[in-house]
Design a binder for these strands. Structure first.
Length: 756
DNA sequence: TACTAAGCTCTTTTT
DNA sequence: GAGCTTAGTA
């Protein structure tokens, strides 16, 4: 390899540069956390453009649209404005764009609707009702997951019904009809001119598979292809990429097996292994130098991931200073955890002159955000929550969007059902059911039935109301052919009665809802008037855009806020100061992810992702009790805390005495506090009667326990080891507990934590 | 058809 | 605690 390289690559280290300059042929970049992966991708693309390749011929698939936008800007600063022509975005958004162009070849309208998860589940519910299946047995969410999994593995409804393993699996669970539901679901989506998230991928695959000429077109268009976060792609995505790259084979995938956290979505480490098999002349680069975090954090994270059996060999190192130790915090409840964290942010901010945006609170589940929101608000610390219910998920916004969807695609059944009687127009459930029935009988859509309602006798008075609705909607539709997206939306908002209804509601929530509609209209206006791109600005495109928009994509004017998000959505981000909270058994690792070693290892990778977000300071916290469905339940610290090499941890804040600290669940308090919302648990001095026994919180290596160690037991509190005995079968330790006296514990089962 | 109160069921992560 | 469904009433 030559030592000569273009000056714009001088910000890269040697391996990074080699990876950026190897632009021809298949390339795999294994990039550890904080190793400058985005930087390599950015400069690699810039380098390709500098070689005279038209940006139009480069496809880069990223994890979020925001990441794509940021990368584009950075590339632009190296190569100039032509970078704007790059094809960059998420799998879903890029393929939606292609499908929009090629829709007719697979029988879809150009303006197809994108069903989100709610739409999909609602459609499944309707189908269940029509088939008279038990909604308790065929839970819509579960059925949706089965269908989604199948699609991600390139199995269509016909295949599904002919694969013995799937038939058996469903039958053994007492759900033999999933195949049928799948088929009906697919048909209904197709008739409605709608695709769900998985269809965007599956239909792209089908398009390329069934139309070699179209595949050929895109193969030649995309001369260079890059895939970021490759460890999180599923089979369908993998196959599409493979097809697209087949003629040039200038394919570069970037990923980190240690950060693979989306197997529930069909992602598989197998894709990395397959990649090596499919492209024997592959060039592999390993980025192992962590530039992001202090060496304490880097080393601690390595000690975590070392516990996983399934991983590629990597040797992550850093030249950064040791930094502070990782703080472990014990709180008595989720509320106290919130207060602690808010207080620590407040103090750190003042001590070290940090910005709010230097802090992030990361949790396993969205529901955990509540206690942090409360305490941050009390401390006047601005924060922003990512995920959860985003702007476009709010009811009133979805209602308004449903109208617009229906204007663009009148066959969109889910949109129609959502708003046909909202605001109330005297078209009740009975009428809607009748309409659906007639539509199904005549192999047509509800809209067609509505259109011809006057030809059908048995609708009685309802026919009149339906007719009115039809007139209104077709008015909007004809308007959409001549007016701008904003003009249409404004008219819809006013004439549909939606806005006037919301205006009447003077409650705080009502006003907020009204303001959200105004904000939506503004967003449409902005979209319509955006002259920075040459793209078309139709209402239809706006709808497709926002269907694939995630919370992380949204820009805000004031960015100096503490970030609250799930660990999943924190991937790819970094913060000076990170709090990983709720480190309790059954929460993190999740109770639902303890069925196999593979599942536990994925949870561990998730923990690894969380820890490696931190640059300078990391705090881990757990609570000993937590609200769950309104009841306070006892919690044990997560095994993950125990798995970290102790030399990197600081337990100062975890050792506070836990006298009289257990809360009695609300249920058992004679209705004390009933109706008062939170904090209704009553403090009691006795331990709770039972704590579910588990072998979860054993020391990572119980050889480590030795006489004189200070240990903490979930139930018995702090103590000192007075003897250790090995019976051959079991290792036992006798511990003198401060509060309850001495106990002999079988280490295999004991829930002990060693304090350094 | 619309509204209200009571009752039931939830447990994960995302495009 | 929240969101949803159901039963009963206006």
């Amino acid at each position: 390899m030559t030592n000569q390289y273009p000056p714009y690559l001088d910000k890269l280290n040697e391996t990074q540069r080699e990876a950026a300059m190897k632009i021809d042929g298949p390339v795999m970049i294994i990039a550890g956390a904080g190793s400058g992966k985005t930087r390599v991708l950015t400069y690699r693309i810039a380098h390709i453009i500098k070689q005279g390749i038209d940006p139009f011929n480069i496809l880069s698939l990223t994890f979020t649209n925001k990441a794509a936008r940021e990368m584009k800007n950075r590339i632009e600063s190296v190569v100039g404005s032509e970078a704007r022509n790059l094809w960059m975005g998420t799998f879903h958004s890029v393929f939606a764009k292609i499908l929009r162009i090629e829709a007719e070849h697979i029988g879809y309208p150009k303006d197809f609707t994108i069903y989100d998860t709610d739409d999909a589940k609602s459609l499944i519910k309707t189908i269940l009702k029509e088939y008279q299946l038990d909604e308790k047995l065929y839970k819509p969410g579960l059925v949706y997951n089965r269908i989604s999994n199948a699609k991600n593995n390139l199995i269509n409804s016909k295949d599904y019904k002919s694969i013995p393993e799937l038939i058996e699996a469903d039958a053994s669970q007492g759900r033999p009809q999933i195949g049928q539901i799948f088929e009906a679901y697919q048909l209904r989506c197709f008739k409605a001119g709608a695709m769900d998230f998985d269809d965007l991928l599956l239909n792209t695959f089908r398009l390329f598979k069934g139309h070699p000429n179209i595949l050929f077109k895109y193969q030649h268009k995309f001369k260079y292809i890059m895939v970021d976060e490759y460890q999180d792609t599923n089979l369908c995505q993998y196959m599409i990429v493979k097809k697209l790259a087949a003629s040039h084979e200038n394919l570069c995938v970037v990923g980190d097996d240690s950060q693979s956290i989306y197997s529930f979505r069909g992602a598989s480490i197998q894709n990395i292994l397959n990649f090596e098999k499919d492209y024997p002349d592959l060039a592999t680069f390993k980025l192992e130098h962590n530039y992001r975090s202090s060496s304490n954090i880097v080393n601690a994270s390595s000690s975590i991931i070392a516990k996983n059996k399934e991983k590629l060999h990597k040797n992550i190192f850093t030249e950064n200073e040791a930094g502070e130790k990782i703080n472990v915090i014990k709180a008595l409840s989720d509320n106290e955890e919130g207060r602690f964290v808010a207080q620590m942010i407040f103090e750190e901010k003042n001590q070290k002159q940090l910005q709010n945006s230097d802090f992030a609170i990361l949790y396993r589940t969205n529901a955990q955000s509540r206690s942090f929101e409360e305490s941050l608000r009390k401390n006047n610390i601005p924060y922003r929550i990512y995920g959860g219910t985003s702007f476009y998920q709010r009811k009133e916004v979805k209602d308004m969007i449903a109208y617009l969807r229906l204007v663009i695609n009148p066959n969109d059944e889910e949109a129609l059902k959502r708003i046909i009687n909202y605001p109330v127009r005297k078209i009740g459930n009975t009428t809607i059911e009748k309409l659906t029935f007639v539509a199904n009988q005549n192999q047509t859509t509800i809209w067609e039935v509505i259109k011809n309602i006057h030809l059908i006798k048995d609708f009685g008075a309802a026919a009149h109301h339906v007719r009115n609705f039809y007139m209104m909607m077709s008015n909007f539709q004809s308007m959409a052919t001549t007016k701008t997206a904003y003009e249409v939306a404004e008219t819809v908002a006013k004439s549909s009665g939606l806005v006037s209804m919301l205006k009447e509601d003077k409650t705080v929530e009502g006003v907020a809802r009204y303001e959200n509609i105004v904000e939506l209209l503004n967003a449409i206006k902005e979209f319509t008037e955006d002259d920075t791109t040459e793209n078309e600005k139709s209402l239809s495109l706006f709808l497709q855009d926002i269907a694939l928009l995630t919370d992380a994509d949204k820009e805000t004017d004031d960015n100096n806020k503490v970030t609250l998000m799930t660990i999943h959505s924190s991937k790819g981000l970094e913060f000076k100061n990170v709090f990983v909270v709720g480190l309790e058994e059954n929460l993190f690792p999740s109770q639902l992810s303890l069925n196999s070693r593979q599942e536990l290892e994925e949870e561990r990778r998730l923990f690894y992702v969380a820890v490696t977000r931190a640059e300078e300071k990391l705090t881990l916290s757990f609570a000993t009790s937590r609200f769950k469905y309104g009841n306070l339940i006892p919690c044990e610290p997560s095994r993950f805390i125990d798995e970290i090499d102790k030399q990197y941890l600081d337990f100062t804040h975890a050792q506070r005495s836990s006298n009289a600290t257990l809360f009695k669940p609300k249920e058992e308090t004679n209705n004390y506090g009933k109706g008062y919302g939170m904090n209704v648990g009553r403090m009691i001095s006795n331990p709770l009667p039972t704590i579910k026994t588990s072998a979860n919180f054993i020391p990572s290596d119980n050889q480590l326990i030795k006489v004189g160690d200070k240990v903490e037991h979930q139930r018995f509190g702090m103590g000192t080891v007075i003897s250790v005995e090995d019976t051959g079968e079991n290792k036992k330790a006798t511990v003198q507990f401060i509060e309850t006296g001495s106990k002999t514990l079988v280490l295999k089962f004991a829930k002990l934590m060693i304090h350094s």
